[in-house]
Design a protein around this nucleic acid. Structure first.
Lengths: 132, 132, 132, 132
DNA sequence: GTGGTCTAGACCACT
DNA sequence: GTGGTCTAGACCACC
């Protein structure tokens, strides 16, 4: 199964960030395993109809964070490095900025806890399906 | 207690947006009450060491959303009544980027829906209590 | 026919508002169709002989109201679908200054309600027909 | 009966303009007849709780347009000048900017002719009552 | 004094 | 190339 990278040009999040996030997410959830090949810059640019510079920028950030490795003349692969294991506290610490941002925005827009939880549940189920 | 506006110039979120968000949240939680005066454009610009235009831009957005009212020659005040400016669909559209960001991050970190919802509830209660 | 934006620098209505109003009206009457590109900030500024910031301010307001979509590095386009952003009450609030002005003027000039309504209907039909 | 001038500080229209418009309207509809006295600058400023400069500015514009006359030491009076008589075409020409502004705004906000006509009728009835 | 608009010119992120 | 943000400084209307 080919790793199915998708971008939304309508979104306000930059294309290069969408790519970085998807690869990072796929790697964290095991959908991409160490050693798996990724499409070349040129091939991905053609498939997604975006500028090769955009792909290169995304791959550069992923390589900097040791998520992927590029082997000259061979291609791009998911890095072999050991997966970090976080404590619960550490995982919560990493999640809390997003929790905080959503909480503030929801309050400002006048949403109740229940409404936000429902939107969140719906979105999580969507993401889960795309992954499976 | 005077309303204590603070900005981080090091942040990637624009200064004017930091101001908008803080005022909106303070208004939603009741920390700013209808009729309360806000610092003048020039005074706030001096205090925060930013350009008056930046403050004016923030105030203009708040006025468009009917959070504040500006009176020529008098100053800026918190709007008398909270008003339903945006449709439910629009408010959901505005919340969805934060929902999406949290959902993706939670998935990548391996949290369950219930765990995230609990963190969210806790944070919402904290923010609501920070009044006065 | 390219969309022909024109401003009157002599007018008391701000330049950025003239631009906003013309684009909004053109979008509402279908003279601008979803997906249509708008001139770039710099190009329009050059053509109208105004500062790019003034154009940017107008485009920012149109984007907030989801009339247009701006794509970083690509340009500005008419939004894909018209969306209900504002509640009925808010739309009435925004219309009421114009209603009030016409009512007062009509009263001062001794027009009956029927006469004003007829003039209004005629003008609305004219504006609607000026498409294409 | 004293001429009952009222201002809305919450409105976006400047106070001095509200005063000018109300006097002009009362004069045009005969509620203020030539020779009728108006309150002094100082008295009106005290009654409306506004700055005397604001009243003075309004009276200056009314005097410039020959709606009122100020007699030093005696007070302010509605001018004796002959009322202009307009042809229907001339009256329509004077009304048309307000008609046009309302039509454009209504179209942009997505209102139907019927909705606008209803808002207009309601507003005209309100103004008629205030006057009676 | 207040806020609103505009110009000029700079820097940054994204494509 | 594109739009987004910020600074500096000016002028205006209103109170």
């Amino acid at each position: 199964m080919a790793f199915d990278l998708r971008i939304h040009t309508g979104s306000s999040t930059p294309i290069f960030r969408q790519i970085v996030d998807q690869v990072r997410l796929a790697s964290a959830t095991g959908r991409l395993a160490p050693g798996d090949p990724l499409p070349s810059v040129r091939a991905l640019a053609e498939r997604l109809l975006v500028n090769p510079n955009t792909i290169a920028k995304a791959y550069a950030e992923l390589a900097r964070d040791r998520i992927i490795e590029t082997h000259q003349g061979k291609g791009v692969f998911v890095a072999e490095q050991a997966r970090d294991v976080y404590t619960l506290a550490e995982r919560q610490r990493r999640l809390s900025p997003a929790v905080d941002a959503l909480a503030r925005e929801a309050l400002a827009l006048g949403f109740s806890l229940e409404q936000v939880q429902e939107m969140l549940g719906k979105r999580l189920r969507q993401l889960g399906k795309e992954e499976g």
